[in-house]
């Protein structure tokens, strides 16, 4: 008998083991839910799958009679818009400022302490300031995501630039490159895959800030809906929304990873060889 740490599951077993917990949770929930509903048919805490399906049908598959819109998709597109604009702004800022401070010592001296300082400000604490200065519209929510994720990305990009071997930067100079050319042809292409990795890591924080901002002031959005129906204990709406948000987060992560693998094959084969 091999030691436990040396036993590797076959492919089929690995798939079975990875699905197993989900199936178990499903049945545990089913059992608990039917038990509670048998005792009290009006119980709201653990809605049956039928009730959940009805809620999904109501929000996602039938149009609102008054406005002719589908609430669920409206919420989804509002939230996706905010999070993608917010995180893209962060990425662009992180890339340009991180590259600048990483490569140019003068810029680093001037900006690094400020960036460190800003990154230590708790974003949620300045949410009221954002609402006051940018109003209750889209801008404040996007700004919260931006402020919550940009400083981390700037610092990450800067440290990535600083990690490039000095030999490479010197080599480029001996081939006649100016600072600008070193930036766009040596440094930029090498930190782009790391920017995508950094975006993937920042997604969790971005969702957190998005839902917080929507919970406090919004007219639509996934986070807004969850906090709205909380008043009626509508678990039948909250559950599918939470699962949907999780799926969206997973999908965005997956897309970023695939993009990176497609665009920067050299990076991924070096990383996997490590």
């Amino acid at each position: 008998m091999k030691k436990l740490m040396n036993i590797k599951p076959s492919k089929a077993l690995a798939i079975f083991l990875s699905i197993l917990p989900f199936v178990l949770i499903f049945f545990v929930y089913w059992g608990a839910s039917s038990e509670r509903l048998a005792e009290n048919p009006n119980d709201k805490l653990l809605p049956s799958f039928e009730q959940i399906y009805k809620a999904i049908d109501r929000l996602a598959l039938t149009e609102n009679k008054r406005t002719g819109e589908y609430l669920f998709w409206q919420d989804t597109s509002a939230s996706l818009y905010r999070i993608s604009v917010g995180i893209s702004l962060s990425a662009v800022t992180g890339l340009t400022i991180g590259l600048l401070t990483g490569l140019i010592p003068l810029a680093r001296s001037g900006l690094s302490p400020l960036i460190t300082f800003i990154s230590l400000v708790p974003p949620m604490a300045i949410l009221p300031i954002l609402f006051i200065s940018f109003g209750l519209g889209e801008l404040a929510k996007i700004m919260l995501i931006f402020i919550g994720t940009a400083p981390v990305m700037i610092r990450d990009m800067q440290s990535r630039v600083l990690q490039l071997p000095a030999e490479q930067l010197i080599k480029a100079q001996t081939l006649g490159a100016s600072s600008w050319l070193v930036a766009i042809r040596v440094v930029l292409p090498q930190i782009l895959p790391r920017l995508l990795a950094s975006m993937r890591l920042s997604l969790g924080a971005a969702w957190l800030f998005l839902i917080a901002a929507e919970a406090i002031a919004a007219q639509e959005g996934l986070g807004y809906r969850i906090f709205l129906v909380r008043r009626y204990l509508s678990m039948d709406v909250i559950f599918p929304y939470v699962i949907w948000i999780t799926l969206l987060a997973f999908l965005m992560d997956y897309l970023l990873r695939k993009t990176s693998e497609r665009a920067f094959p050299w990076y991924h084969s070096i990383e996997s060889g490590k």
Binding site: Q168, I170, K171, G176, W266, Y267
Partner: peptide, 19 residues
């Protein structure tokens, strides 16, 4: 007082661009 195209260099490693 800074590297330029007059002087070429080959280091022991990290001399080529990985990307």
């Amino acid at each position: 007082s800074e590297p330029d195209a007059e002087r070429g260099i080959v280091f022991q490693k990290y001399s080529v661009f990985p990307h």
